[in-house]
Structures are given as structure tokens and as C-alpha cells.
Amino acid sequence: MCGIAGTVGTRPDPPALARMAGAMVHRGPDGEGTWHDDRAGLAFRRLAIIDLHERSSQPLHLGPLHLVFNGEIYNYVELREELRGAGHDFVTEGDGEVLLHAWAQWGEGALDRLNGMFAFALWDAGCARLTLATDPFAEKPLFHVRTAAGMAFASDVRALRALDPALGAPDQTALGDFVAIGAMPALPATFFGSVSRLPGAHLATWQDGDLRVRRYWDPRRVAVPHSVDDAAAELRRRMTESVRLRLRSDVAVGTSLSGGVDSAVIATLVGDLAPEGARHAFTATFAGFERDEWGYAQGIAEAARVERHHAVRPAGAELLDDLTLLVRDQEEPFPGTSIYAQWRVMRAAREAGVTVMLDGQGADELFAGYPMVFGEALASSGPRAVARALRHAPRSTA
């Protein structure tokens, strides 16, 4: 992950931009950059994944366009070739430059062509307009807040507080709801007072002091295969293509491996697609716990030809030792300690020199692994779908 931040409105303060970048060093240990003109300023911390050369350092510039970008555009190779065909020249091998040229070519229409996870800020000095955008599922966070000078944005709330410590005061109502019933703030609200988070698939533009936020993408229905075999074949094709694109990297890629189907599928596909790579897998294990999944994960690792399978052993006493760092990194309250195991897995990966991790997060929501997802899926389909489901639901004869 990288870190992006900036301000718009009056002339930026260069030391403030440097403070904002410095507050995100944990997001990007591989470099720092700032830029500003008379109305906007950008700050960046880099985690180098594609094109490790300094030529891909940010902010990136193309005529009046200035970009900071967090994430990865998985189809950047294909987009770069399309853009070259349209007359664009490139000086880097990175995906950030492709995003910049795509915006120059298609404007907001570029968002329809992107396959990736991203949060970016683009300042168009020609029309004095700042654009913020997030990927369809907001995998990469982007916070924004109005200030006395205009507006500020950042990947982390702490970067906003580096600009002004008064920003991001706790929202007592949101905290009360969380403590009472475990409720998380509904986006764009956050736990931090006046700070908003840009939801997934949303675009925000700032021009002449006016901030406008709108959705640019909605899920749509697709044709469903008529047989289970056809559905399985299509799922395999899509999963294989998805993993193939995510293996584009100039640094080591590993997998977060549990004993479940989701991460097992990913680890196996990685083994099939990159058999020559030195593959790492990381598993949280809890000795003596009856539902510990190490045995299953070990079997999957052997079948997937994982070269190094790392056992991560979080313990209660260590949680207390790490609590300050964990809370700092999460920035917001969280309802349980399972997140600590994932945090430890990511720390182990970093210590092993693995920069990129693929895992199965979100599969239970997507494939209805949790019973509650059925209800959410029905509700999103409208009242007629709910009525049909109730008509066909099994009836008790007791």
C-alpha cells in the first residue's frame, strides 16, 4: 500500500505537505514526494511494487495533470498498449503513469476501463479541479475533510491530523453506537467528527470551493450459466484470470493461507500460474485450539507446492504488547480480536521480505458463506425476489 494526501483551496504550505507525507511512512517506506502550485498540493509515500525505479515515484505529472495514486491497476499492460496505439508515449514501466495517461485520454471514462484496487487524487491545473476516486469496493481508503483554507484529503486520518491536530476529533455519537450495539458508522461518516470517507465506486470533485460527490458505478445483473458444470467452469476461468493479473509484480508475492476453500483456491492457482517463483504462504495457528486449521493449511501448502510455509502464532499476552501498534494501524474501533491474527500474518510477511499478499478476504460475503448474506442478497434484489423466496422456502410441518 502507498499513502496519498493533499490540500486544495488557498496556496498550500510545503512544510504541512511534508508532515502529511511523514505521517504515512508506515504505508510507504520506499520513498516520499510532494508537489504544489498556487492552489493545490499533493503528498505521497511509496511502497514500490511495479517498476521499482525512481522514475515511477509520485506525484506524477502530464501537462496540467498531477496525480497521486494508491493501489494497483491490474490491467495496466493492456491499457498501456491501447494508449500507445492512440499516440501516447511512456517513460516508466509503472501502472501509475498508465492511469495518468488514461485520464488524459478518456477523462472520467477511464474509470470504466480500470481493473484494479485504487484511491487516487488528480489535480487538473488547467481548470483548477481536484478529483478524488475510489475503486468499486473501496479496497483503498480515502478520507477528506473541509478546512478553513478549503479541503484536505489523505489515506489515513493521522495524515489529516498532521496538517491540523484539531481535525479528526472523535465523534461521540458514533463511538456511543459502537460501544452500545457494535454499530459501525454508515459511509461516508466515520468515527472522526467532520472527517468523511469516500465510499467505493464514488467520485468527488472540488472546484471553486464546491465539493460534489457521486457514484460512478453500480453492480449489474449478469447472465448466469444454466448448469452447475458451466458455472464451475466460468468461475474457474474468472478466478484464474484474476490471480494471473494480480501476480504482476516486481517484488515477492505470497499468500495468506487458512484451511478454508477460498485461500486454498488462490494458493493452488498461484502454484499453477507461477511454478518457477519462490512462493511463501503464511498461516495463523493456535496450538491446542480445537478448530485450529494448521493441519488443513499444511496439506494445501504441500498440494500447491508452496516452498516456504510460515506458521504465525499469535498469543493473548502478545496482543497486549502489540495493542498500541494495532490500534494505531487500524485507526478505528474494531469488534473482535480476529483482526489481530491477520495483522500478525501481515507483519510476518513483511519480516520475511514478502511485499504483496493474496488472500481470500471477502469470499464468504461473495459466495454466501455466512447465512446472513442470503438475506442481504434478497433484500438487494427487491420485494418481488423476497416474495418468491418466501413462496419456495421449506415449510415446517411440526
Rank of each mutant, 00 (worst) to 15 (best):
V251Q: 15
V253G: 11
G254W: 02
S256G: 15
L257G: 09
G259T: 02
G260I: 01
G260N: 00
V261R: 03
S263L: 14
V265W: 07
I266Q: 09
A267Q: 06
A267T: 13
A267C: 12
T268Q: 05
T268F: 00
T268M: 06
L269E: 07
L269V: 12
G271N: 08
L273Q: 04
L273C: 09
P275V: 05
G277V: 15
A278G: 09
A278W: 04
R279H: 06
A281R: 01
A281L: 04
F282C: 00
F282M: 05
T283Y: 13
T283P: 12
A287G: 11
A287V: 11
G288M: 10
F289E: 11
F289Q: 12
R291L: 13
D292C: 06
E293V: 06
E293W: 11
A297S: 05
A297L: 08
Q298N: 07
Q298H: 15
G299F: 01
G299H: 05
I300H: 01
I300F: 07
I300L: 10
R305Y: 01
V306H: 02
V306Q: 08
R308C: 13
R308I: 10
H309V: 00
H310I: 03
H310C: 00
H310A: 02
V312Y: 14
V312T: 01
A315I: 06
A315N: 11
